[in-house]
Design a protein around this nucleic acid. Structure first.
Lengths: 137, 137
DNA sequence: GTATCTGCAAAACATTTGCAATTCT
DNA sequence: AGAATTGCAAATGTTTTGCAGATAC
């Protein structure tokens, strides 16, 4: 995705498109790997030598608030981020660690015991072994 | 649940029923509040003044390994535990913080894009506002 | 010139680890 | 005695906070 488009997307969502923010969002758009802060940091530090993790946390918090990114808690000890904010599932392979996206056939959140709840977020995830690792085993 | 029954349950699952372990499991069975380590600690320290959090972590890890407890990652920054190991959903109220159990109509894990995956764990959770807090608002 | 953004350093927490002391069989 | 269990103290690792300097409008 080109720089112009990223700038537009940020502005549209009420986010001032600073250089750092554009780079972070670009990373998330182009790497659908559900990264943690350190993965983003190690990649962007190449382009932006002065980058700090504080700025990444600030930026990602802002993206979460503005709703252009969602938080994935599939790993107990760290936050992972996903620029795809649609409701979809995730699968974490216990062998290789990769987190896959899982398409859903029908919408979540229509469970009877949720009747009187106001749902703002839905998360579905699985753990196990992915096809690639199953073949090797 | 009485002490005898708890002892049996632990033994059945290959866990030596030490006093600490029985108390931790009893807590989890009788308090379906999806507690974090600190909640368990603050309660049990009343009965067991020498209790340490290390022991709680050891015990809970053992319970997880033996499969008599499941881990809930609905709160980013902490582990929460549930003695109900059946597949069911959770709802966290953003206002009062309570985590509710959500019954599922049908089994999860039959999504088409999961075809070739070997699924060992399924988790579904929601966030939003619970009925009690909706009424107050 | 004022508000916003960035980043260093330190703090805050939850969790893990090393190891010694205790307990159980 | 020997193995399992417990717990203190320190380490680890991620995220948050306070604040100062830099940048943008």
């Amino acid at each position: 995705m080109n720089t112009r488009k990223i700038e537009q997307l940020l502005r549209m969502n009420g986010i001032r498109p600073s250089h750092h923010r554009m780079k972070v969002y670009e990373y998330l758009i182009e790497n659908r790997n559900h990264p943690n802060v350190d993965m983003i940091y190690r990649e962007l530090i190449k382009d932006i030598p002065t980058l700090s993790k504080t700025t990444l946390y600030n930026t990602l918090d802002l993206f979460l608030q503005k709703g252009i990114v969602q938080l994935i808690t599939i790993n107990e000890n760290e936050m992972r981020y996903d620029a795809d904010t649609s409701v979809h599932g995730h699968f974490k392979c216990n062998t290789c660690g990769i987190i896959y996206d899982i398409r859903l056939r029908e919408p979540l959140a229509d469970f009877e015991s949720l009747n009187n709840f106001q749902v703002s977020e839905s998360h579905l995830y699985f753990r196990g072994i992915c096809p690639a690792c199953l073949v090797k085993a």
